[in-house]
Design a protein around this nucleic acid. Structure first.
Lengths: 139, 139
DNA sequence: TATTTATACGCAATAAGGTTGCATTTATGT
DNA sequence: ACATAAATGCAACCTTATTGCGTATAAATA
């Protein structure tokens, strides 16, 4: 099946070994289309150890498959990167949206973050925008 | 001393009892002028129990003295609210800046978040912007 | 000012998230 | 098929987050 090949190619292109756990995690992200925390993975992929999932997320973060999404809850959440991201260069300019009803966080890939200026002397590395409210399904 | 009165008035105006711990916590926020986590408070205000500090932060959050600042680290951090904030209505439109060198997060009260538009069907409650890079001191 | 009472505090305990070390298993290059 | 570097699972530990409960105390009231 070509879908399986697609998943494998994502790993290959990021120089990661192909393992069941990694394939399942990527598949889950692609299926959900929302930001996920380690807890989300643990409850859905019970066949894998907490630590394995933790290290899977870490390796995906390092290799540019996932990016961390800031939130106020104090729980690390992750979103899928664009194809254009690599370990040394993340290129994210989209808005993150958190729904206060269903609790899901999603990457609005079509919505780019407006330019900002900072006070004199500040150097900008990256800009993150998190909007909360009600998503299209919950509004 | 009038400074003490200022601190007490902040508590009074938010309908909170005046206690040593609460005064010290507010004083610390005013002094630091940066966002703080519970861990920051614990290491500086060792005379109070962790739980007391935890509940102090909670009550300040509920009463509108503090607001939570999203971050990618997975640790809850808090910033002082404007005078205009109340329990039922937070009015924040400033940019948060996280320095990748000194690690401090600050509220750039003078810098307002640019307006954003979302896809059809979305309802916006609040917009949070976190910029990271190097602050004026570390650049 | 003394008394009452609702609230805050400190301690103990627990849950959950995050992280590391190590022995075993497995993916992949030869 | 074999060798080896990497991934996994388990145990363990640390930090942060959170609740219950008895005691202490701020502030309302008499």
């Amino acid at each position: 099946m070509e879908n399986a090949d697609r998943l494998k190619n994502i790993l290959k292109s990021h120089n990661l070994r192909i393992t069941d756990c990694r394939l399942k995690v990527i598949e889950f992200f692609l299926y959900k289309e929302t930001a996920l925390s380690q807890g989300d993975l643990e409850s859905k992929l019970k066949q894998y150890d907490r630590v394995t999932l933790y290290r899977t997320l870490s390796s995906f973060l390092d290799s540019g498959i996932l990016h961390k999404i800031p939130n106020a809850a104090g729980i690390a959440t992750y979103g899928l990167c664009h194809e254009t991201c690599s370990p040394d260069h993340h290129d994210h300019n989209h808005i993150h949206f958190k729904c206060n009803n269903c609790g899901e966080t999603e990457c609005l890939d079509d919505k780019s973050v407006p330019p900002v200026t900072l006070p004199k002397g500040y150097l900008i590395n990256a800009v993150n925008m998190i909007v909360d409210g009600f998503c299209a399904k919950c509004a």
